[in-house]
Simulated scan of single mutants.
Amino acid sequence: MAVPHGSTLIEQRYHVAGTGPVCVAHPGGPGIGWDYLRMPLLERHLTMVYIEPVGTGASGRLPDPRAYNLATYTHFLHAVVQHMAVPGVSLLGHSHGGFIAQRYALDHPEHVASLVLYDTSPVTGEDFWSAAVANMERFARLHATDHPEAATYAAGLTTPLGRLTDDEATAVLRSISPAYFFDYWGREKEFGPARRELRMYAAPSLGEDTPFDVREELSRVTAPTLVVVGEADFICGPRWARMMHQAIPEAHLVVLDRTGHLGHVEQPEEFAAAVVDFLAMPHGSAE
């Protein structure tokens, strides 16, 4: 579908799979391809609509890379929701996609029947990133003996991707991705395909935006909300999940044990059960 953005029409792609009430899923990033977020177990219960964000994959590119910001992503998400013409959707946002989901639920509450905030945070900024780097450094020390390459992960996390090609940015993401799992090397045969599926597009990292912070607004969220977090997520872990849980009226919190930033890959049955059970509640119905 073509979406107006300023004076330009930009192609916005999305992918539909499954059957049941509609759940729109926004991947993380900015700039990560949608494929890693595929959730086959949820597709048994829900019509999953996976957003392919502008600047990635087959979606269009913005003329000015500085425009890859929260307002732009929210604008394109709204266009997809309107295009589907469903009275109310479940909205699932992972990581950076969770920032977009929070913003969308605040700005367009009439379109959101329920909200799933998955490994995300209500705030970024200096404290958020300092904590992420410190956790990454802790991960490197823990695995230094068997995997000395982990010593480079903190530097990879802070690499300015906008200076790289898409292939180079993808290589950086894949190189540090073991830290996104609780036990990548112990289950490498299982998680290797997911790692190879990760794809990063460099231009969205050039977007100009203020640090994300909706902490003072979350009390206005009207959609029934589920917060899901991996207990070992180094970047959007339980500290940030509890902030959302406490701020959003009557939100539910699920902490997945022995799980990092990719619970739908690491603990797919537990993750899917948490989402499906929540949406089956009368207050969480997507219908």
Rank of each mutant, 00 (worst) to 15 (best):
G192M: 05
S90T: 13
G260C: 06
A101F: 06
C23V: 00
H83S: 07
I10R: 03
A280R: 15
Y201C: 02
G125Y: 12
Y50P: 08
A154H: 08
W129M: 05
D166G: 13
E188P: 09
T152P: 07
G97D: 07
E149H: 12
P27R: 04
S59K: 09
R242I: 11
A17T: 12
A113H: 11
Y184E: 04
A79Y: 09
D167N: 15
G6I: 05
H283P: 03
H83F: 05
H108V: 06
G33A: 14
F191K: 04
F128I: 03
S7V: 13
A101M: 05
G230N: 05
A144H: 08
V265L: 15
H143T: 14
N135I: 10
M243V: 15
T158G: 08
C236P: 13
G125V: 05
V123N: 08
Q82N: 09
R61F: 03
G31F: 13
I51L: 15
P122D: 01
P4Y: 09
A155K: 12
P193Y: 06
V276I: 09
H5R: 12
T47P: 10
A286C: 06
Q82W: 05
P282T: 07
G260R: 07
L256M: 04
Q246L: 07
A101E: 03
P193H: 10
Y184L: 10
P53C: 05
F181T: 02
S7C: 11
E269N: 11
T225C: 04
L115P: 01
P27Y: 07
H78E: 10
A232P: 13
V133M: 11
T210P: 00
R187N: 14
V228L: 07
V254Q: 02
T222Q: 15
A274K: 03
S90N: 13
E216V: 00
W34A: 10
R44N: 06
W129G: 01
A105C: 09
R239Q: 14
G156C: 12
E149F: 10
P148A: 07
E208A: 08
R138W: 11
V275C: 05
G60N: 04
D35M: 14
V172E: 08
P87Q: 06
D233W: 14
A155T: 10
I10V: 12
A140K: 12
L198Q: 11
F191Q: 02
H75C: 03
L42F: 03
Y104F: 14
V116M: 05
L42P: 02
P249V: 00
V116D: 00
E208G: 02
T225D: 02
L161Q: 06
L91T: 02
H45E: 09
A202K: 04
P4G: 06
S114V: 08
P204S: 00
V22Q: 09
H252N: 08
Q102H: 07
A154Q: 07
Q82F: 04
L106V: 06
R103E: 13
V254H: 02
T159M: 12
Q246V: 01
V116K: 02
T56R: 04
F139P: 00
V276E: 02
L77T: 04
L173H: 10
L62E: 01
T56G: 08
E231S: 15
T222G: 14
D127F: 09
M48P: 02
G156E: 14
G230A: 07
F191N: 00
L42E: 01
L41W: 11
